[in-house]
C-alpha cells in the first residue's frame, strides 16, 4: 500500500539559493512525523511545498497515492490535507464558531444556486455544521467563545482555534507549523496531549517545531534539515545519538 504522504526528492530555489535540495520522506496514518532544523533550514518551505502554497521545482509530492506536485492548495485539501500557519491565519473578522464552520467547507454541499434561493437544505446544513463546530470548540477548550470575534481572542486561543478549524473537515494529514511557539509549559503539555490524540484518531500528523522537548517526547519519526538538505532521519533515539546531528544542531540542546 502506498504511504499516505510521500515526498520524493523535492527541490526549490529562490533566486539561486537552494532552499530545499532532494528532500524525501513519507509517513502513514496515525504517525507523528516531525521536521526539525535550525532557522532557515527549509522547514517552512517544505511545508509550503507540501500544502501547495508554491510548487516544488524538482521532485514529487504524492498525497494518498495521487501525484499532487502541481495541484493548487484547494485540490490537496480535497484529498484530506490540512495545515496551520506559523504566523496565524485566523479569519479575524468572523466569530470563532464561524472560523470552524468554514473549516468544514469541504464537508458541506451548498453551492451558489441553493445559497441564493435560500433553500431549506441550506439552513439545515448550517445547523448541522454549527453543532459539529461547537463540539470541536469544546474539544479545544474554547467552549463559550463561539460568538467571540476570532481576531479579538488571546494568542493561545487563536492557536487552538486554528487547529480546531483544520480538524473540521476531518483531515487525513495535518501539517502543524510551530504549534508550540509562544505557549507556556503547561499549554505545551496540553498541546502534546492533543497531538497524541489526533494521531490516535488515525491522522498523519506532520510537525515543524523548535521545542525539542516536545518533539522528542511525541514523535514517531524525525527528519533533520540543514541548509535545505536531509541531515538525518529516524526515531528520536536514533536522531539524538547521530553524531552529525549532535555536531550541527542538537549539541547545544542535549548537553
Amino acid at each position: 500500500m502506498a504511504p499516505l504522504l510521500d515526498i520524493h526528492a523535492v527541490g526549490v530555489s529562490f533566486g539561486g539559493v537552494r532552499a530545499l535540495d532532494g528532500v524525501s520522506f513519507s509517513t502513514e496514518a496515525g504517525r507523528i512525523f516531525s521536521i526539525i532544523g535550525p532557522n532557515g533550514a527549509g522547514k517552512t518551505t517544505l511545508f509550503n511545498v507540501i500544502s501547495g502554497a508554491y510548487p516544488a521545482q524538482q521532485g514529487k509530492v504524492v498525497i494518498a497515492g495521487r501525484d499532487m506536485t502541481t495541484a493548487p492548495p484547494s485540490a490537496r485539501a480535497a484529498l484530506g490535507l490540512q495545515r496551520t500557519f506559523q504566523n496565524l491565519q485566523i479569519f479575524g473578522t468572523m466569530t470563532a464558531l464561524e472560523n470552524v464552520m468554514v473549516g468544514g467547507h469541504l464537508r458541506q454541499r451548498t453551492g451558489f444556486p441553493s445559497a441564493l434561493l435560500g433553500l431549506p437544505s441550506v439552513a439545515a446544513e448550517s445547523r448541522a455544521m454549527r453543532r459539529r463546530a461547537t463540539e470541536l470548540l469544546d474539544l479545544f477548550d474554547l467552549a463559550g467563545l463561539g460568538g467571540a470575534v476570532a481576531g479579538e481572542l488571546a494568542y493561545g486561543q487563536q492557536k487552538r482555534l486554528e487547529i480546531a478549524r483544520a480538524l473540521a473537515c476531518e483531515p487525513r494529514i495535518l501539517l502543524l507549523d510551530e504549534p508550540a511557539a509562544g505557549l507556556n509549559p503547561s499549554e505545551t503539555e496540553d498541546l502534546a496531549n492533543v497531538i497524541r490524540r489526533l494521531a490516535g484518531m488515525g491522522i498523519a500528523v506532520v510537525l515543524v517545531e523548535h521545542d525539542m522537548r516536545l518533539v522528542m517526547a511525541i514523535s514517531d519519526e524525525l527528519l533533520v534539515l540543514n541548509f535545505g538538505r536531509e541531515l538525518a532521519r529516524g526515531t528520536p533515539a536514533e536522531v539524538s545519538s547521530n553524531p552529525a546531528v549532535i555536531e550541527a544542531y542538537l549539541g547545544v540542546e542535549v548537553d
Partner: peptide
C-alpha cells in the same frame, strides 16, 4: 450559508481559505 462564509473567509485570509479547500 456555506458560500457566504467561504467568501468572508476569502476576504479575511486568502491563504487560509485556499488551504481549507475553497
Amino acid at each position: 450559508s456555506r458560500v457566504g462564509r467561504a467568501l468572508r473567509a476569502i476576504g479575511d485570509s486568502e491563504v487560509a481559505a485556499e488551504g481549507l479547500g475553497i
